[in-house]
Simulated scan of single mutants.
Amino acid sequence: MRIGTAKYTYQHDEALFDSRTQYAWLAILACALVAFPFLANEYWLYLACLVAINIGSATGLNILTGYTGLVSLGQAAFMGLGAYTVAVLEGSLGLPVLVNLLAGGAVAMLGGFIVGIPSLRVKGLYLAIATIAASMILHFVFSNWTSVTGGTAGLTVAPARFFGIDLDTAFRFYWMVVPITILMLLGAANLFRTRIGRAFIAIRDRDISAEVLGIPLLRYKLLSFGISSFYAGVAGGLWAYFFRSITPESFPLTMSIFFLTAIIVGGMGTLLGSILGATFITMVPEALKLIVGWLPISADATLILSPVRTIVFGLLIIGFLIFEPLGLQEIWRRTQRFFHLWPFRS
């Protein structure tokens, strides 16, 4: 039973979606996702697949940084672990796609557990530096463990196969990456309705108080690192299947900054922020390409685009921290409230 916003059953209070309006919007969104690949061209399908991969990785980073309060600049390195794991398993054993992706997530999770060990002693800037050091170590491994990673030449990945069909186009790949990303989002949404997710939030808000209340900090910090890295590993595996060629330079430190920018711009500590931020930040380089293409510049545009993109990411972080620290998700919520009250506003 429900009257207004009051909830009278435990099941209703625990429901992810609790109104007919929400279910209606979900149905519209599902129809749009199904119809999109039949209406979009190859370029927009490419962007849609890339956005889905980035949403998965940004969600993982948001679990660690937004919900647990642990800053990490190693997300790209964990994606690399997942990507190389998928590439090796696909090339050597030819295992099913889902097995490879889960294995990539598991290897990245193991790396996350190891990198998360310093989190009990250090936090903030010092923890960020520790994760940068870990990413540099992994980059060294990717570059020099030639027998496994192929060294600087990298590895080539065969296209993913489902039921004997090669997912070798953006149209076909879309039908794998979008459902997996949705499952990752649903998993994260349900995580924070459990004891583990609430422990993460308690650690973020006041870790000393959380420890006094009986929350073992090391266990839950390591678990947060592990879950975040698992998401990054799966996203990295999808990245490998999508681009089908990986090198150590595929996962630079700037990619980690990209994902940190995404959750800051989108809104830390919210899944909607992960979605909006990853989508927005993925589209920024595409917009920059158009702008640079319009400018009367004779030099190669790609030489200009890389530093300009880094500058833009930095400006976005500074701008949102100053003017809208809650990110795009707060702008969306304010817009919702405005239209909800619009007929009665003075």
Rank of each mutant, 00 (worst) to 15 (best):
F78Y: 14
T152F: 11
G82Y: 08
A40W: 01
S298K: 04
T335K: 05
I117N: 13
L16R: 07
L102H: 07
G60H: 08
N62Q: 13
W332T: 04
T335A: 15
T152N: 12
L223A: 14
I311D: 03
F313M: 13
I275H: 11
T169E: 06
A278M: 14
V308W: 02
H340L: 09
A6V: 15
H139Q: 07
L328T: 01
F323C: 04
L315D: 05
L316V: 04
S57M: 15
V212Y: 03
L167G: 06
A103Y: 05
L39H: 10
G197R: 01
E286K: 10
G226P: 00
P118E: 10
L326W: 02
V308M: 12
I28F: 15
P296S: 11
W44R: 14
A76L: 14
V51D: 06
R161I: 10
L16Q: 08
F162G: 08
K123L: 06
W25L: 15
F243P: 00
R309Q: 15
F320P: 01
S228F: 02
N190L: 11
C31D: 03
K123I: 03
F163Y: 01
L98K: 02
A301D: 09
I264H: 01
S135L: 09
V212N: 05
I331K: 00
A6Q: 15
L272G: 13
S209N: 06
V284I: 15
L222M: 10
V178Y: 05
F225E: 06
S298M: 05
G124L: 10
M255Y: 07
T310D: 13
F17G: 03
L61D: 03
A48G: 11
P252H: 02
A160T: 04
N62C: 07
Y8Q: 10
G82M: 11
S228I: 02
V178W: 07
A32W: 10
A134P: 06
V86R: 04
R121T: 13
V115S: 04
L125D: 12
G187K: 00
G267E: 09
N190G: 04
L93P: 01
R337V: 03
V177S: 09
L288M: 14
A202M: 07
T181Q: 05
V71M: 14
Y43M: 04
T149F: 06
A134Y: 06
A52H: 11
Y241M: 06
L110Q: 08
V51H: 05
A240I: 09
I304E: 10
I63H: 12
G214Y: 01
A188F: 00
V177H: 06
A199P: 01
S298A: 10
M79Q: 15
A103G: 09
M109G: 13
H12C: 01
T169Y: 03
L50T: 05
I322T: 09
S274D: 14
A106V: 15
E286H: 12
I263V: 12
E211S: 05
I227D: 04
I114Q: 04
V34D: 07
T310S: 09
I114A: 14
L326T: 03
Q329P: 00
A24V: 06
A232G: 10
D205Y: 00
F171E: 00
S19V: 07
G187D: 04
M255L: 14
V99M: 10
L321G: 03
D207I: 00
W294T: 08
N144D: 11
I3K: 11
I331R: 00
A83G: 13
L183R: 04
G69V: 02
G187N: 02
G164T: 06
D168Y: 01
A170W: 01
G150H: 04
D300N: 15
